[in-house]
Design a protein around this nucleic acid. Structure first.
Lengths: 146, 146
DNA sequence: AAACATTCCTTAGCTAAGCTAAATATTAAT
DNA sequence: ATTAATATTTAGCTTAGCTAAGGAATGTTT
């Protein structure tokens, strides 16, 4: 590993801080998520389904960075719990289009609300100037991190 | 749910952005982590062991927000792979103190290096002013989010 | 000091979520 | 009409989470 230049070192320090901060933020949220009654992975796929509309199994697998069989089974379970509905696409009956039921949307939105409130409580302890820094950083990262 | 005031709404928007940004940052890192040959959970406990020194099973469980049996089994496996070592504490022979081996530290540091470089590549595309915003935000969040 | 209670860890056994390989069904192409 | 390709499912394995129950060491009470 070559010796990094000064600016590279600064970049790496920022990267390191960002890594740790992201971990802590999500760790904080995880505890609150338990209240939904869904596991992390299920909550995550339900979220994709709710916000990115009807979607095939394959698209869901790509979105979750997971293999199709994993999604296939989760959708079966979520459908059985009435949170999600699936039907063959009209243009290609191999693909299953998955969408959220009203119950699925309700559950997700309540969970999302709890999460947001948990983080809000954290941000509330900051002076407004720092809140703005956090917001600006989040916007920057959302722009560049796919 | 009561109607939020204007500042509460702003806070919630920031919280929402922060949530999404954190997810995307960690998702980006996950792909790189696969190169270590360790799963996410194992990498995570190894990291805690390396950076927080010798630690009991119970402390590790608390750090990872997981029940002790989960850690107990993972430590058994990591020890078997030579990445970690455990021995009874001298002052209380019920507790097992876990520490990293040289091999464990090497593996972790290489992985950490890869992660940091991956994020650095992302940050590099930003103008310096935005890099500073991200760094400032990360520092703020590390301060308030345990 | 003996008995009881507590604490730390492990074992056993379950479920969920990840994987690969192989099967099925539909569509596309030759 | 076959053959190839694609989308999903099924089957079977591993890892990681859980709870319940047990063993060993330590603390507490009488």
């Amino acid at each position: 590993m070559a010796k990094p230049s000064e600016s590279e070192a600064a970049l790496q320090q920022t990267a390191d801080l960002l890594h740790s901060a992201s971990i802590r933020v999500l760790r904080r949220i995880r505890s609150v998520d338990a209240a939904t009654g869904l596991s992390g992975p299920r909550l995550s796929v339900l979220s994709v389904i709710v916000f990115r509309g009807p979607l095939s199994i394959g698209d869901l697998a790509a979105a979750e960075q997971v293999q199709p069989p994993t999604i296939s089974r989760m959708i079966k379970d979520l459908a059985h719990e009435g949170l999600v509905r699936r039907r063959p696409a009209t243009h290609d009956r191999r693909v299953q289009l998955v969408s959220a039921t009203a119950a699925g949307r309700r559950l997700l939105n309540r969970g999302r609300q709890r999460r947001v409130l948990e983080l809000s409580a954290l941000l509330e302890t900051l002076p407004p100037s720092e809140q703005q820094v956090v917001q600006a950083a989040a916007e920057i990262l959302l722009r560049v991190a796919t």
